[in-house]
Design a protein around this nucleic acid. Sequence first.
DNA 1: CCAATATGTGCAATATTTTTGCACTAAACC
DNA 2: GGTTTAGTGCAAAAATATTGCACATATTGG
Lengths: 155, 155
Amino acid sequence: MENLDRFDRRILHALQRDARLTLTALAETVNLSPSQCSRRIVRLEENGVTQGHALRLDPEALGLKVTAFIFLSMDKARMASPSDAVAELLTRDEVIDCHAITGNHDFILKVIVEDLSELSRFLSTAVTSLPGIRDIATQVAMNTLKVNGPLKVLL
Amino acid sequence: MENLDRFDRRILHALQRDARLTLTALAETVNLSPSQCSRRIVRLEENGVTQGHALRLDPEALGLKVTAFIFLSMDKARMASPSDAVAELLTRDEVIDCHAITGNHDFILKVIVEDLSELSRFLSTAVTSLPGIRDIATQVAMNTLKVNGPLKVLL
DNA sequence: CCAATATGTGCAATATTTTTGCACTAAACC
DNA sequence: GGTTTAGTGCAAAAATATTGCACATATTGG
């Protein structure tokens, strides 16, 4: 996948930070013509390098004041397909991220909810009831220093 | 913050999932005229509800194959301004997220790098050398089930 | 209860932006 | 060396977003 040349990388670098850059503006920052930028962008889409545009929202503005990390440990006996139990969680809008991880726990979830009582409600209604859960540990974010930083793209 | 009416919420709901929806398409899904959608979108921007558009990239396509979580514990003696030490980390492109959290550790970092040796290099060059670090724990993601899911927006 | 103001709305014209046809260039491959 | 292939900029065409305007709807003050 390193058939991305210097221009592709510059385009990705710029659009990661502001996807609404106009082609003309983009063309200037990457030193290419607008038409070329356009063509490269559709190629990057076709190759699956880009995964669509997302509008970023401020959680606070939506009344979502609590970010928390939930660590799940699964019952080894029933670990045949642990993801099945977790799959249900993925559909929930409270769950922003979910990864299977190494270490003591099996999964890490990042959830964003209104407040602590909503977190509590989420835990008891959505998590505790999952089959095969051995342990749940929750850590609340007190402060958000960086969210969704742009990926490392070498220029 | 809850001066968002039903239409605003629908707009946010839709644009979170695909920010490149055309105003006409958006207008149809939310049952409003395109011009109204446009006006509401700029208002949402002005009110800070939206935080810009981001192009989503596939890390794999960029050769970034390893996602890891790094947990930092700071030396309490030097914890006067722990964020200062961490501030340096925020500027790094490997660091996607950073939160101060409750629990045993003080910070959680989400990093995305090329491979394990890059992770190792990042840890030794960027993290270990920070002043006031008491402990570092790293957990590697083996599997990514959900990333950057849309925020909960009640319709 | 009514008038007066403010806010929100759709339509249509305008302005901006994106895409594409085309001719040209530069490199790669017989 | 000639031929092909991929890449490029320009300018026209298509698509999209924005804005002025007239009208409707809701809100406030008398």
